[in-house]
Design a protein around this nucleic acid. Structure first.
Length: 686
RNA sequence: GGCGAGGUAGCUCAGAUGGUUAGAGCGCAGGAUUCAUAACCCUGAGGUCGGGGGUUCAAUUCCCCCUCUCGCUACCA
């Protein structure tokens, strides 16, 4: 498949240094990349595997500001935390770098300078939004407003998540700073833009030359080229003081856009790893470049980064970008801000030494083609009925039988037809595993590996050495010889998926040499006959109901406690709105009203039509609460009504006022604001 | 209402350029067995492949309509 390539450079998305690593990161990116790399090494191919912390960008400066520390302190904290967590799970990077290093600053700076000197960028003086209260220019992500295309009222400055439009902050209607809540003001500044629109044809040629990409990657990438007006120029610099300074005269106070500098971290990491030889890995067309990422990164790795590489010249382009979808947790999206996550360091504290159980379960439910759900019940079941019952049990019974009947040494395998058939399964299954992994089908590959353990269990049941031992010692040893070879092969077949367990199997087998997939394609032996076996130990432990229950309880407790000030990164509480005067407040006529009737509005999912008694009149008010309350739930409630709001017609019905509701930021649920005590209908609120 | 994705065994999912008895793992039932973490091995039950219509010799697979689920959206939080 990749025969024209001599070596493979594998990158895993640089994790952003503003929080720890959770199970979604592992399943989406780090685990598949690690499995792939380990597999390639087992095939004897030359591979380099790099990653590192992504440490720039405004989100980090904001977190630092919030905690009253420097950005450096933030990135140091998470850089080491992430690096260690990934290492603890056996993610075998050849090098883990970081973008705040001097080396990376030079790489990014030089890369930018080269493009600049080539005249690739278009310098544009533009009016950018500036937050007068926070005294800084605002990153796209920190401005919200109404989308000009679909009128969504919470579009971000770079993108509208509702209609998918790519935006510039100035496109937004009614912009607001999410830093201070202030209305940002326009201020002139010069930035350097990458005219992606000019590169559309090249990009299209590049992408359509890769129809083998996964449908989600290929489709989404092309849709960016085809969408609306096509690609738009993007600014590659920002007005910010944390990042790689723009290496251009007159660019003081500006840094490279984090999405410009982050992918270059892959280059820095290879330079640090390979020294002088780095160009072999980045510029020789016989090197295959593979990016493992989550689906949120597709556009940058398939459009922006290739465009940069093309314009620079001399670099190879990504040949494969096997992006995964997202992993949910117990039916809900993982969320750092809501603390709905399983952190890697937490998992290891509760399940010490059981990295492979999580690696196995996450591989078996990997979101390869669509979003998937991780549940603790599934985790328990897969551990108990697959790892313990099928794989662990086989290894254990072979060990025990060997010690019992064969003096603890590896016996010579038999050569009856059924013996040869069982041994042949190694070549067959390992070939299937190999084929699936070459195609980035990790779930399927894992299933083929587990099938080999099933072959072993069936072989033992069929041959029953505990029976033959009563009459035929030679046959007994022959059977166990076959079974032991299968176990040795299993260590190799599972190596890429569960390296810790594979190593433990090898230790139990007396430390045979590590195998390659070429070895597995043969007929063995995979552990030398006569080798003295080591101590037998259980490979996997059963997981009991109370452990699973404890994990679920922990998850919900952490979510409920939701220490937003500690973990908040993406969806903070709504910022304080701009100051108003009493004179601006006074005109509001707020009063207590009683809901007399309520009914759903046809063809509107959210609207309830309410009939209210305000004390002075009866009126109809439409309220967008149908998703949270049934009509019968609201009849008889006393509510707070904004009574002098101008009437507005929706769905052909005139709404005469507005009910006040509170929005629970944790759950997103609406709640009534209710008058305390026995306030009469018509009472005013001030 | 609109856009997108999807509805295949109790559960999680494969699959089918349309063509003999639609698959896997788990779960369940029965059997066998005892080397093994009551695990393993065998057998079985269980599906009108969401519903209806169309094209076709033949559709679960193609087309249309409907329905339900999920995400987002239009609609005063």
């Amino acid at each position: 498949m990749a025969s024209e390539f001599k070596r493979t450079l594998v990158t895993a998305a640089l994790p952003y240094a503003n929080g720890p690593i959770h199970l979604g990161h592992l399943a989406g990116c780090y685990l598949p990349s690690d499995i792939y790399v380990r597999f390639k090494r087992l095939k004897g191919e030359e591979v380099a595997f790099v990653c590192g912390s992504d440490e720039h960008g405004m989100a980090i400066t904001m977190k630092a500001r919030k905690e009253g520390v420097s950005p450096r302190e933030i990135v140091d904290r998470y850089h080491f935390m992430m690096r260690d967590a990934l290492a603890d799970f056996g993610i075998a990077f050849d090098h883990y770098s970081r973008t705040s290093s001097e080396a990376h600053h030079k790489v990014a700076s030089d890369f930018f300078k080269t493009l600049y000197d080539k005249g690739v960028f278009e310098a544009r003086q533009t009016d950018q939004y500036y937050d007068p209260e926070a005294e800084q220019f605002l990153a796209d992500r920190y401005i919200t407003g109404t989308c000009p295309r679909c009128s969504h009222d919470a579009a971000y400055g770079d993108q509208c998540e509702q209609c998918g439009a790519t935006l510039n902050p100035t496109d937004l209607i009614n912009p607001q700073s999410t830093l201070s809540g202030a209305t940002p003001v326009l201020k002139a500044t010069t930035n350097w833009f990458l005219p992606l629109d000019k590169f559309s044809d090249d990009l299209r040629r590049y992408i359509t030359s890769h129809p083998e990409w996964k449908p989600n990657v290929y489709g989404q990438t092309l849709s960016w080229l085809d969408a609306g007006d096509g690609l738009q120029p993007r600014s590659m610099t920002r007005d910010l003081d944390w990042g790689v300074p723009v290496p251009v005269q007159g660019a003081e106070g500006k840094v490279l856009y984090v999405w410009f500098d982050a992918p270059l971290g892959y280059i820095t990491a290879v330079q640090e790893l390979k020294g002088q030889d780095w160009e072999t890995w980045w510029k020789d067309p016989s090197t295959r470049l593979v990016h493992f990422i989550g689906k949120d990164n597709i556009v940058f790795h398939c459009v922006v980064f290739p465009a940069l590489l093309m314009q620079h010249g001399g670099y190879i382009l990504p040949d494969q970008v096997p992006a995964n979808e997202f992993l949910n947790l117990e039916g809900q999206k993982l969320s750092t801000s809501r603390n709905w996550a399983v952190w890697l360091h937490d998992y290891l504290a509760d399940f010490p030494g059981q990295q492979d159980v999580l690696r196995y379960v996450l591989t078996a439910t990997m979101p390869e083609t669509k979003d998937n759900d991780f549940t603790w019940a599934d985790f328990q079941q897969r551990n108990n009925s697959e790892l313990v019952a099928v794989l662990g049990n086989l290894v254990n019974r072979v060990m025990v039988l060997n010690h019992k009947f064969c003096g603890g040494r590896v016996p010579a395998p038999g050569s009856e037809p059924q013996d040869l058939e069982a041994l042949a399964a190694v070549a067959i299954q390992s070939a299937r595993v190999s084929e699936a992994l070459e195609a980035f089908k990790f779930r399927e590959a894992l299933g083929h590996a587990m099938d080999l353990a099933r072959v072993g269990n069936k072989y033992l049941a069929d041959e029953a050495p505990w029976q033959t031992v009563k009459t035929d010692q030679a046959r007994t040893e022959a059977i166990l010889g076959v079974a032991t070879q299968l176990v040795a092969a299993l260590a190799a077949v599972f190596e890429a998926f569960m390296p810790f367990s594979a190593e433990r199997i090898r230790v139990m087998l007396g430390g045979p040499p590590a195998l390659t997939f070429a070895d597995l394609a043969g007929t063995g032996p995979w552990v030398p006959v006569g080798t003295a076996l080591g101590e037998s130990a259980l490979l996997f432990q059963k997981i009991e109901d109370d452990q699973v229950e404890a994990q679920r309880a922990k998850l919900h407790a952490a979510s409920a406690a939701n220490p937003t000030s500690m973990t908040e990164t993406s969806t903070p509480l709504a910022p304080l709105a701009p100051e108003i005067t009493f004179d601006q407040f006074a005109p509001l006529d707020l009063r207590v009203a009683l809901v007399l009737e309520a009914e759903r509005v046809p063809k509107a999912d959210r609207l309830l039509k309410l009939t209210l008694d305000t004390g002075i009149d009866r009126r109809t008010v439409l309220s967008g609460i149908a998703e949270h309350f049934a009509p019968e739930d609201v009849v008889g409630r006393r509510v707070i009504l904004l009574a002098n709001l101008a009437p507005r017609e929706m769905r052909g019905i005139e709404s005469q006022g507005m009910i006040l509701m509170a929005d629970n930021p944790e759950t997103g649920k609406l709640a009534f604001v209710q008058p305390d005590g026995d306030l009469p209908v018509g009472a005013t609120v001030r």
